[in-house]
Design a protein around this nucleic acid. Structure first.
Lengths: 194, 194
DNA sequence: CTCCTACTGACACGACTGTTTCAGTAGAGG
DNA sequence: CCTCTACTGAAACAGTCGTGTCAGTAGGAG
């Protein structure tokens, strides 16, 4: 519930950043201490000392990934108004090729948390769904934000974004998928009355 | 390219079926020979003999899962006409609670294939996207089936289904997500002109 | 009976896993 | 100077992994 370390110790954040870069291109599934330690110029002993155990490291990496995720969410709160505009805004971020390693990591953690509810993955999938639904709610106009229909609209918007992301990660066909997302924002903008 | 065994040997299919049941509830990520062999009343030696190596077993399990997947796709070809109807039809299948282990397995394989293009996961994600797009195409009326807009519509339909599936697997909130999918089929049915 | 194919058990090999133990070293504060 | 904290290296622990080796056994075909 509470943060275990108020001051994460400069060395710890430094190694975490390096391990994060390693995880972005190697994935989390078969991550093991010795290879990652060798890659970031450290040792398994030090990782154990700083993160307690392997699960602690994985949890820290997941939390680090969430920082990047939240960094893109934040501008939505202020500048964007309306669900279609929010979807368009998020998609432009998702479609950027440099973000793909992060998104692959996200997909991996999501799927893993579905199969293995225990362990460091915890309720990753569930919490990421509710978090995003909450963010999308802040972009909706007032009558729609609190109604049942507004929740369904958010759910649809989120599903479209996530499904499009899955397609993009698999095929890389940005043009086709972007056209589909834009089509969705179009119909969402012209038919909020259902 | 070709099937390695025209007659998979009764014993092999029997053990594959048992291992498939095991994988459905334990996942593929940390599958290892000894536990699965013990669970299905066999031995690692026999699994090696029948499937060559672990990757062979995993590939066989993935192929077995695809059989279930194709079994639901098939009725789409004949009875369903129109993309919205196809989406509704697929979703009713996806939402059935008994299918959830299979869908979790699917999500796991999909994510894994994104991170690890080599190995038995191969191009699982990419092939599953193109396969489904092809199936959805057969449900579209003729002018729309071959146009660029038709491809975009298929892409959007598939994205909605996959995104909704991710939500369902994480939250299990069938009512909310089903409402979102039905909303989507509604707007897709009334606005094919974009 | 023999032979051949399909299958199986017991065991060991080397590699790798997370983790622990013991012994340090560098730097800051007093 | 001493001391305490933060960090690190080397090595070993017990366990699991995929895989290979060598020896079988059951059953049908000739």
């Amino acid at each position: 519930m509470t943060a275990p370390e108020p001051t994460p110790s400069a060395r710890k954040t430094e190694l975490l950043e390096a391990a994060y870069a390693y995880a972005l291109e190697h994935g989390l599934a078969d991550l093991s201490l010795r290879p990652v330690a060798a890659a970031i110029g450290s040792s398994p002993r030090v990782l154990m000392f700083l993160f307690g155990n392997k699960d602690g490291l994985v949890k820290a990496l997941l939390a680090r990934a969430r920082v990047d995720e939240l960094a893109m969410i934040e501008p939505l709160h202020s500048s964007v108004s309306g669900l279609p505009e929010a979807v368009a805004h998020v998609w432009t971020w998702l479609a950027v090729e440099e973000h793909r390693p992060l998104l692959r990591l996200w997909a991996e953690a999501y799927a893993r948390s579905l199969v293995e509810p225990d362990g460091p993955w915890g309720g990753f999938a569930e919490s990421t769904v509710t978090d995003w639904l909450a963010v999308l709610a802040t972009c909706q106009p007032e009558p729609e934000r609190t109604t049942e229909q507004g929740l369904v609209l958010r759910t649809l918007a989120l599903a479209t974004l996530r499904g499009a992301l899955l397609d993009l990660l698999a095929t890389g066909d940005a043009a086709r998928i972007t056209a589909a997302v834009e089509l969705q924002t179009g119909v969402l903008a012209t038919s909020p009355e259902v």
